[in-house]
């Protein structure tokens, strides 16, 4: 891809575009970062860095393309890097402490079934939880999720399938696996 910088819009216009297209998604980014990091303060830092980095490379963003997906791509990349650098600690936290309980500062009012689903979700390994947040909650397509996670589309499909199967076992541990054995 080549960019004609001489034709770049003036700074004020780029600022306006950045505010109206990128900063609009801060809350959504924050929501997902909080879930994926399992720590509100860390999520704040990640989102802040995501937006500063997005501004730095705003000139490469193609107006009209999906800004939310672009921002998520940057953010997930940052989260993965941070996880890698804190891998042992992060593993410990995700296994021993439910991610949502770790970040919520209030007791959410949930139905019993919802609480069960959330508890099951929190006990999934990170890579499966991430795919559920991206595809089920944020409703990104498999293709978008694959680009964000830097994995083939087939991996997204199989991870989501496995994630749902794991949740099924966690929610209904006694349910006979009719289909798998049919």
């Amino acid at each position: 891809m080549t960019t004609d910088y001489s034709a770049s819009p003036p700074l004020t216009e780029q600022l306006e575009n950045f505010e109206s297209l990128a900063l609009l998604h801060t809350q959504t980014l924050l929501r997902t970062a909080t879930r994926m990091c399992g720590n509100a303060s860390e999520a704040d830092d990640i989102v802040q860095e995501t937006l500063l980095r997005a501004w730095k490379y705003w000139h490469t963003f193609e107006l009209g393309s999906n800004c939310r997906a672009w921002l998520f791509r940057i953010m997930i990349n940052l989260i993965h890097r941070r996880r890698e650098s804190l891998s042992s600690l992060a593993e410990h936290v995700s296994v021993d402490e439910p991610a949502m309980a770790n970040v919520l500062r209030f007791e959410p009012k949930l139905e019993m079934d919802e609480r069960g689903a959330l508890s099951a979700l929190n006990s999934l390994p990170k890579e499966y939880r991430d795919i559920i947040f991206l595809v089920l909650v944020e409703e990104f397509s498999y293709k978008e999720a694959a680009v964000m996670l830097n994995v083939p589309m087939g991996t997204v499909m199989s991870r989501l399938h496995r994630a749902r199967q794991m949740m099924k076992k966690l929610i209904c541990p006694d349910q006979k696996e009719d289909v798998a054995t049919a």
């Binding site: 959410p108 919802e114 959330l118 949740m167």
Partner: peptide, 10 residues
């Protein structure tokens, strides 16, 4: 259920 729980929390 996952969507609903997450929506409630948000």
């Amino acid at each position: 259920l996952v969507r609903s729980a997450v929506e409630q929390i948000d």
